[in-house]
């Protein structure tokens, strides 16, 4: 089976900012692939290039064998798209919306089945304006699958949801994926990628910096050990040995030293403290941060750069 999506060297520039930087990607048919990354990493730009909303500046793109830039009409018949924002027509009910959507496709699902699949059956005849945020999102999901698509794009399907609503949405997405379609999901939640995807692409600053499954991501990111402590006020920070830079300082002034050789560095630290008459280093800790912590740092890091998502 040919890959559902195959792209190479895809680049998109907005003025001086390179939103997507020469990305190569191959997504197998039938796979659930999560494009994971912080806000502003380029997820939405990349996915909108694949959907046909945005024109790439360079590179080759094949989605289900079509070039979204030139063959969007053909592509639209075979993909389902859930955008970041819900926009049901307020005066219409989910059933009316879905009945209309079903007419657009050659081989649509039954409206009742689609409603059932997303758990909207009991709200099928309620006006769009009276649906909750989560129910609107379910309607988006139902609309995206009513045409029995081969490929489904889900752009941040649970952003803004509370924990319960997110879990419910995951159940719905699992139901969709069980139908055998390829699914591409963007998210900035690590747990969402972990729960839904077989394969994860971690994107940052427009580049895919990791690709693989969650276990691989764990191995990749959890290699680093950290020695951290609370420096006593009377000690001058500039006296630290040069090769220990960079040392991260927490909000409470706590210092943290990432290291690949914790034993060597720890004994060096103890020696350094002892020379300054400090036999006990306050709050000394040696730890291996887990994937969640590493990911949160990555997200924080890029948010501090003040980049905005997309547009």
């Amino acid at each position: 089976m040919p890959p559902a999506i195959s792209i190479s060297g895809v680049t998109k520039q907005y003025g001086p900012v390179t939103a997507v930087d020469s990305v190569d990607l191959e997504i197998e048919a039938g796979q659930v692939y999560a494009l994971l990354g912080p806000n502003g990493a380029g997820k939405t730009t990349l996915i909108e290039i694949l959907e046909g909303y945005r024109q790439r500046d360079a590179g080759h793109v094949s989605v289900l064998g079509f070039d979204p830039q030139r063959q969007r009409g053909e592509l639209n018949r075979r993909v389902g798209i859930v955008l970041q924002r819900s926009t049901p027509m307020e005066g219409l009910t989910p059933r009316e919306m879905l009945n209309f959507s079903a007419r657009l496709y050659d081989d649509p699902m039954n409206t009742d089945d689609a409603l059932e699949l997303v758990g909207l059956a009991e709200h099928a005849d309620r006006r769009g304006s009276k649906l909750s945020g989560g129910q609107k999102r379910r309607l988006d999901l139902a609309t995206s699958v009513i045409g029995n698509p081969d490929l489904i794009f889900l752009d941040e399907p649970t952003t803004g949801f509370d924990a319960t609503a997110r879990r419910q949405a995951w159940e719905v997405v699992r139901g969709l994926t069980a139908r055998g379609a390829t699914v591409i999901l963007t998210t900035h939640y690590l747990d969402e990628a972990e729960h839904l995807a077989q394969k994860i692409g971690l994107i940052k600053d427009g580049r895919i910096i990791f690709e693989g499954d969650i276990a691989g991501l764990r191995r990749e990111m959890e290699t680093e050990t950290r020695i951290s402590w609370q420096p006593p006020n009377e000690l001058d920070l500039t006296e630290l040995p040069g090769e220990w830079q960079p040392i991260r300082a927490g909000p409470d002034g706590r210092l943290s030293l990432p290291t690949q050789s914790p034993t060597v560095d720890l004994s060096r630290l103890i020696e350094w403290a002892r020379q300054r008459g400090l036999d006990e280093i306050p709050e000394l800790q040696v730890e291996r941060p887990d994937l969640e912590e590493m990911y949160l740092e990555l997200v924080d890091d890029s948010q501090s750069l003040g980049q905005a998502e997309g547009s």
Binding site: E51, G52, Y53, G73, N76, R77, V79, I81, L83, R85, T87, M89, S101, L104, Y105, T143, G147
Partner: peptide, 12 residues
Amino acid sequence: DGTLKQLAATPL
């Protein structure tokens, strides 16, 4: 509000 964006992704 994005309604037409969504519509543009359908085969209408």
